[in-house]
């Protein structure tokens, strides 16, 4: 048998990538924001591409990282949904989060990780009917299969830049944030990534999963931001 060059069979670099995902709970649901650019290295290669995938009426999966890997994951999720339907069930956010955690962890144990950070957002069907106990779900899975649940999150470069800022805003209102307030925080956060992350884009979308409305995919939006600060950057002329 020919010698196996194991290292050559692995994805050692992502190619076409997406940047940060920022998500936040509000009173009756979750809002998730992603920009709409696909980067090829540092180049903004494709515009107007969504990074949000509607699984069903209760679950929205959003990703940062490699687009090709996620397109494959979409198919995996689609098949999982079909499998659940065989038993007359619709997959919920917690179950899908668990499934994807196992998948990403198994792949990293094979030294062949999926190059994605996933954000699974949604509401459980049972909880939809009981507004009192209803808690919207946000679950994160890193590339290495490290998974956790949060009330608000920023991934990618946003994990370094934004988590504190988002948390501060969230804590001001506790769990009583309205959707508008949450979206305002997300937009402010996007503005910050735009200033600091060279692959972030100013075209974005905000999707949401609401206990009353289910999954609502967002429309394309744009912000300009305040570039007068560029003057103070001494690296510029």
């Amino acid at each position: 048998m020919a010698p196996v060059h194991d290292e050559l069979q692995r994805t050692l670099n992502p190619t076409c990538t997406g940047a940060s995902v920022i998500a936040m709970q509000y009173k009756t649901g979750v809002v998730v924001m992603t920009d709409r650019v696909v980067s090829y290295g540092k180049m903004a290669r494709y515009k107007n591409v969504s990074r949000q995938y509607k699984v069903n009426d209760n679950v929205l999966v959003t990703f940062g990282g490699d687009h090709a890997d996620f397109q494959w994951l979409q198919n995996v999720i689609e098949r999982q949904v079909l499998l659940w339907k065989r038993f007359d069930q619709d997959i919920g956010p917690k179950a899908l989060h668990g499934y994807l955690t196992s998948l990403l962890y198994a792949r990293r144990c094979k030294m062949n990780p999926l190059w994605n950070t996933l954000v699974v957002a949604g509401v459980e069907e049972e909880e939809k009917n009981n507004k009192e106990t209803s808690t919207p779900f946000i679950g994160i899975i890193t590339q290495k299969g490290c998974a956790y649940q949060v009330k608000h999150v920023a991934t990618g470069l946003g994990a370094f830049l934004l988590n504190q800022a988002v948390e501060d805003e969230f804590r001001k209102k506790g769990d009583e944030l309205t959707r508008q307030e949450a979206e305002a925080v997300l937009k402010k956060a996007l503005e910050l990534t735009l200033y600091h992350d060279c692959v972030a884009d100013n075209d974005f979308e905000i999707g949401r999963v609401d206990a009353n409305e289910g999954v609502v995919l967002g429309k394309e939006q744009t912000i300009i931001g305040d570039w007068s600060i560029a003057e103070t950057n001494c690296q510029y002329e």
């Binding site: 198919n75 689609e78 098949r79 079909l82 499998l83 065989r86």
Partner: peptide, 13 residues
């Protein structure tokens, strides 16, 4: 039939 539909979804998306 279910298995076939699943395979189709995997192969052709």
């Amino acid at each position: 039939a279910y298995g076939e539909a699943m395979k189709w979804l995997k192969d052709y998306r």
